[in-house]
Design a protein around this nucleic acid. Structure first.
Lengths: 205, 205, 205, 205
DNA sequence: TATGAATGAGAATTCATTCAT
DNA sequence: CATGAATGAATTCTCATTCAT
C-alpha cells in the first residue's frame, strides 16, 4: 500500500519522469548488467534523487522488468510483419534488414536483452514462453509452407531465424569487438551487404 | 601482497585448488556476470573457504582475468588452424563445425566471453587489440586470396568471420531462448546441418 | 561517489553530525593511530551507524585528512601571532606559553599530529611543505633580525622553534609517561614555570 | 605448552633468527605503529616464513613486548650514568649529548617508544612505574642536591629531564617534519650546538 | 626447524531501501 | 512530488593465528 503511482491517470510530470528514469536505466543496465547497475547511477543519469526514483518504481527490479516488457514488444514487432502473402525471399530479407537496422538504432535494447538471456533469462521466462514461442512457431510454419511450395530453398526455419537474430544482433552486442577488428571501416554498410548476400544465396530457390 | 602463492613452482595442492577455483568461478561468472558473481558463491562451489580463495588469487578481478586469459587462447585456436593450402570451402566449414562444437562443449566459456564483450570488454582490451586483431587480419587475407583465385564466392571476409562467430556462439549464449523455442528437438544436430548448408550455399564458387 | 553529501550548503543536521563524527574520530585516531582506529569505534563514539558515517565522509581516510586539515590551521596559528615589532623575549615567551596552553587544552590534536609525523606524515606532506615551511622560514628571519639587533642572545632560530615545539607538545604526547613520573604534582604549573625560566635564561641578551 | 622455544639453551640458529625477527619488527613497528604493522611485513623483512616467526615468538604482541623490554634497558642507560660525584653541568650536558646521539643512532627505537607512549603505553605500564619511576626519582634527587649546593641554577629537576627527552628525541620522532624544514642543513651538528647552548645558559649557576 | 595451507574474526565499503519531512 | 537522512544486509578483502607435515 501507499505506493507512489496509483492506478489513476498519470500527470505530465509523472509521464516525463518515468520516461527519464527508464531511459537512464536502459543506459545503465545495458552497460553494466542488472547486478552491476546501481540506483545511484540511474538516479544521477536521470537527474532525479534516489528516493524519487523509488516513488515512481517499486524498486530496482521493477525498473528492469518494465524495461524488458517494453523491449520485447518492440523487439518482436518486425517478426510480426513478415507477410505470408508477400514474396518469400523479399519478406525475409526485409526482416533481416529491419533487424540489422534495429541493432544499429537500439544497441542498448539489444544488449539489455542479451544480458538477460545470457544469464538464463531469470526475469523474462514468461515472455519467452508465451509471446515469443507462439510467434516463432507461426513464422516457422509460414516459412515451411514457402519451402513446400518451392519458393524458398529448403532450410530449418527455426535455425534460420536464430541465424538472423545472431548475425544482426552481433553488431550491437559485440560492438566492442567489432570496433576493434573493423577499425575505421563502415561497419553497417558492409554488414548490410554481407547479410543481403548471405541470405539471398542461401534461400534463393 | 607478500602472501599466499609465491612465484615458485606450484605444488599439487596448489594446482588442484587453483583448478577448482577457476572451474567454480567459470560457473559463477558465466552465469551472473562479473559484478553479479560473489566470492561467496565461488567459494561455496569450489568447496573452499572464502579466505582460502584469496590465498590462491589476489582478488575477484584476478580470478576473472585469469579466466579470460586462459579462455582467449583456446577460443582463438580454431582460427589458427585454417590451412591456407587446404580446400577453401572445406577449411571454412571445418572452422564452422569446430566453433559450433566448442559452443556445445564449452558454453560457460562462451558466455563468459560474451558477458565481457557485452560490457565493453573492460578487462580484455589488450587481448582483442593484439592477439585477436592480428589473427583476424591474417585470416581475412587468406580468404581474400581464395576469393581472388575464384575458389570461393566473393564476400567480405571480416563479416564472414563475424557471422560464423555469431551463429555458432548463439547456441551457447542464447541457450535459454533456444531451449524454449526448440522444445525437445535435437538442437545441435539441426544447427550443424543448418550452418553447413548456410555456408556451403553462400561460399560455393 | 554520487552519494551522501553534495557540494551544496550543508544543513544544520549535516553540520552537527559532521562535527560529532570529527570529534569522535579525533578521540579515536589520536588514541590508536590511523591504522589502529576503526570506523566501528568512531561510529559508536559518535552515536551514529557506520554507514551513516560514510554518508558524511567518503571513507576513513577522508575523515582523517579532514581532521588534519583543520588541525594544521589551528596548530600554526600561534606562530603567526609572533609580532616582529614586539619585544623579542616577550614575544617568544608568549608563544611558548600559548603552545603549552594548547598542549593542555588540545592534547588529542597534539597526539593526532604526533602520530602522523611519527609515521612519516604520509597524509600530510603538502601541508608541511607549503604552509609550515614558509611560516617557519618567515619566523626564523624575524628571530635572526632580533639577534642581529642584539635584542636576543644568539641561537639557531630553527632549532629554537623545534625545542619549543618539543618541550610544549611533550606534555600532551608523552602524557602517559609524565603522569607516572609526576604522580600528584601540578604538572602544568611546573611546566609553565620551568619553560619560562628555560627560555628566559637562554634568550636574554 | 608446545611452544617453540623451550627454556633450554638456544642454538646459534635460534639466536640469529630471533635477532633477525626483532630487527625486522623494529623497522616495521616503528614505522607503522603496533596496529599498522603486520606479521607479513615483518616476516618478509626478516626473510622468514610467517609460521616460523610464530615458532620463535608467541605472537605479534610478544614480539612487540620483547622489543619494548630490550629498548627500555638501553633507553634508560644514559640516565644511570649520571655521576653524582662529577661536575653537575658537565654531567648533564654529557647526558644531553648522549641522548641526542642515541636519537641519531637509534631513531627506530625512539619512534617505537614514542608510538607506545603516545597511545597511553598500554603494553609498557609496568616498565614506567617500576624501573623508570625509581630512576627518575633518584636522578631528581641528585640534581636537587646539586642545586642546593649552588652548583646548578635552580630548576625543577623533573621538568628538566622531560625537556632533555623532548628536545633530543624530537629529532628522531619528528624527523619527517625536521627534514622538510631544515632542507639540506646539517641537522645534527646544529642540534648539538643548540642544545649545548640551551642547557649551558639555563643551568650555569 | 621450517613452511604450505587454511581459517575465523574483523574491517572498510557498497547499495537497495526506508523514514521523515 | 521531492529529498535529506539513515540503515541492514551484503561484499570484498585483511590479518593474526592454527594445522599438518
Amino acid at each position: 500500500m501507499a505506493e507512489g503511482i496509483t492506478a489513476k491517470k498519470p500527470t505530465r510530470i509523472q509521464l516525463r519522469n518515468r520516461k527519464r528514469i527508464l531511459d537512464a536505466a536502459l543506459d545503465v543496465f545495458s552497460q553494466h548488467g542488472y547486478r552491476g547497475a546501481t540506483l545511484d547511477q540511474i538516479a544521477a543519469e536521470a537527474g532525479l534523487s534516489k528516493p524519487n526514483i523509488l516513488y515512481y518504481f517499486e524498486g530496482k527490479e521493477d525498473i528492469h522488468v518494465t524495461l524488458l516488457n517494453k523491449l520485447m514488444d518492440a523487439w518482436l514487432d518486425p517478426l510480426r510483419h513478415i507477410d505470408p502473402h508477400g514474396d518469400p525471399l523479399e519478406e525475409i530479407l526485409r526482416y533481416v534488414h529491419r533487424k540489422l537496422e534495429m541493432s544499429r538504432e537500439f544497441p542498448r535494447e539489444s544488449r539489455l536483452f542479451a544480458n538477460e538471456v545470457l544469464q538464463g533469462a531469470p526475469r523474462m521466462g514468461p515472455h519467452l514462453e508465451t509471446g515469443l514461442k507462439e510467434l516463432v512457431d507461426d513464422t516457422a510454419r509460414v516459412i515451411e509452407d514457402w519451402i513446400a511450395q518451392g519458393r524458398l530453398a529448403p532450410v530449418d526455419p527455426r535455425h534460420l531465424i536464430f541465424s538472423i537474430w545472431a548475425t544482426t544482433q552481433h553488431y550491437a552486442d559485440f560492438d566492442a569487438q567489432v570496433q576493434v577488428l573493423m577499425e575505421g571501416r563502415d561497419v553497417h554498410k558492409g554488414a548490410s551487404e554481407f547479410l543481403d548476400t548471405l541470405y539471398r544465396r542461401m534461400l534463393a530457390p
